[in-house]
């Protein structure tokens, strides 16, 4: 029955505990606590010429159950107050929601302390390295999250940094994370970085010129984000309900929530 073991229904409801207590060889029953749950969901970030856009769906699942249809995955980081009106950074977390929230709170507290001590907000590159350190500190009991950090760099350009659960990070033009990352990422390669696109009539075979990579305007990027999530919702059961989008520009952070399919 190994081939069906991924099916949560056949293994009973999804507890944070490893299924039913197992009988060991000597007949002793062993209870084991599993500290992690996968809460599904997906995130996406794209850096533009003078903006960065971060998005995530708002469904929170465990197994086949939907725990809530509105659990935000994108957070403002580093404002002076709890309202985060003057925040200059965005963080998205997907994976295990409790770890995601813990990480978000920790990074926000650190950025707030930095602002209090230095009298200025933390730069996105500094925060990116700091986040990596925070995550690597828990190398052997990691935050079970795929994080993406967004903001504007020193030159005012959009910046996106993506992380694995133990803090390995990289600055990128775009990144998808979470349950539907494998569905969205090739789409982004194709539509944001124009991978596999060539200019017709510029030559034969290897002579063909690649389509020039230009930063996309904001309205086009917003359409891409919506399309990416509409596609992911269609084929992944853990993605849906709402689409939270945050856009950071020199004028601040704009937030909107669009509806996604709820089936």
């Amino acid at each position: 029955m190994a081939m069906f073991s991924q099916n949560p229904v056949l293994n009973g409801p999804n507890y944070s505990f490893a299924e039913v207590p197992k009988d060991a060889v000597d007949g002793l029953r062993e209870h084991r606590f599993n500290p992690y749950t996968d809460n599904g969901g997906s995130t996406l970030a794209i850096a533009g010429a003078d903006f960065a856009i971060m998005a995530g769906d708002t469904r929170l699942t465990s197994g086949y159950s939907i725990n809530t249809r509105y659990a935000p995955k994108v957070f403002k980081i580093g404002g002076t107050t709890s309202s985060q009106d003057d925040a200059n950074l965005l963080l998205s977390v997907v994976g295990y929601a409790a770890d995601g929230e813990a990480l978000q709170e920790r990074l926000d507290a650190i950025c707030k302390m930095y602002r209090y001590r230095h009298g200025k907000p933390m730069s996105v590159s500094a925060c990116a390295k700091r986040l990596s350190t925070i995550m690597y500190q828990k190398r052997f009991f990691p935050y079970y999250v795929y994080a993406i950090l967004g903001g504007l760099d020193e030159d005012g350009r959009g910046a996106v940094y993506s992380y694995d659960p133990v803090g390995s990070f990289e600055r990128e033009q775009c990144r998808a994370g979470g349950a539907a990352a494998s569905l969205i990422m090739p789409f982004l390669d194709n539509q944001v970085n124009f991978k596999n696109q060539y200019v017709p009539g510029t030559g034969v075979g290897h002579e063909l010129k690649e389509r020039e990579r230009l930063p996309l305007p904001r309205n086009e990027v917003e359409v891409l984000v919506k399309d990416a999530f509409d596609s992911a919702v269609e084929r992944h059961i853990e993605v849906g309900d709402g689409l939270q989008i945050m856009i950071i520009t020199k004028d601040g952070i704009e937030e909107k929530v669009l509806p996604l399919k709820r089936d």
Binding site: A180, S182, L183, I184, M185, P186, F187, N190, Q191, D227, A228, D230, S231, A232, E234, R235
Partner: peptide
């Protein structure tokens, strides 16, 4: 197949 689902569903 996962990558193809994402691509086909959007293109």
């Amino acid at each position: 197949s996962e990558q193809l689902f994402g691509m086909c569903e959007s293109l």
